[in-house]
Computed example of a mutant assay.
Amino acid sequence: MRKIKLTRANKSILLKALALYYYRERTLGHSTQEVGKLILKIDSLPADKRVAFSTEEIRLMRTTINQLRNGRLAKGQYTDAADDMLLKLY
């Protein structure tokens, strides 16, 4: 377990990245139970609080945020919030 402090902006970017991943996996017919649990966990947390996450949850967050970041870069959009969240996860 590792504790990470989620700011309001980081919480928002994380939920957006996980939601995109959740719906893509659901469309493909893959299991979305773990992603759904993580979304509910993060959504229920108040901003600016340190929260413990498992290694698997952190891996999933890194993967989804990186996908969101790369998608934004491909469109020429800013990635400041995604970059900030990735730094917290590493």
Rank of each mutant, 00 (worst) to 15 (best):
K5P: 02
L6N: 04
L6K: 11
T7L: 08
T7F: 06
A9N: 10
N10W: 02
N10T: 06
K11W: 13
K11P: 00
S12R: 15
I13G: 01
I13P: 00
L14A: 11
L14Q: 06
L14T: 11
L15E: 09
K16H: 07
K16P: 01
K16S: 07
A17G: 04
A17E: 05
L18M: 13
A19E: 11
A19T: 08
A19H: 11
A19N: 09
L20T: 06
Y21T: 05
Y21C: 05
Y21K: 09
Y21L: 10
Y21N: 07
Y22C: 06
Y23P: 00
R24V: 07
R24G: 01
E25F: 10
R26F: 03
T27S: 08
G29I: 05
G29D: 00
H30D: 00
S31E: 07
S31W: 02
T32D: 03
T32P: 00
T32V: 11
Q33N: 08
Q33T: 10
Q33D: 07
V35W: 00
G36A: 11
K37T: 08
K37D: 08
K37Y: 01
I39Q: 11
I39T: 09
I39V: 12
I42S: 01
L45M: 13
P46H: 12
A47G: 01
D48P: 04
D48W: 15
K49T: 13
K49F: 08
R50N: 06
R50I: 04
V51F: 12
V51D: 03
A52Y: 06
A52T: 09
F53W: 05
S54W: 05
T55A: 12
E56Y: 04
E56D: 03
E56V: 07
E57K: 03
R59W: 01
L60P: 02
R62I: 13
R62S: 10
T63K: 14
T64H: 02
T64S: 15
I65S: 01
I65V: 15
I65C: 03
N66C: 12
Q67W: 07
Q67A: 14
Q67V: 13
L68K: 05
R69Q: 10
R69G: 03
R69T: 13
R69Y: 11
N70Q: 13
N70W: 04
N70A: 10
G71W: 02
L73K: 11
L73W: 03
A74R: 08
K75S: 14
K75T: 05
G76R: 00
Q77D: 14
Q77Y: 10
T79W: 12
D80F: 15
A81I: 15
A82D: 09
A82V: 12
D84C: 03
D84S: 08
M85F: 09
M85N: 04
L86F: 12
L86H: 12
L86K: 12
L86G: 01
L86V: 10
L87V: 04
L87S: 04
L87A: 06
K88A: 03
K88R: 09
Y90Q: 12
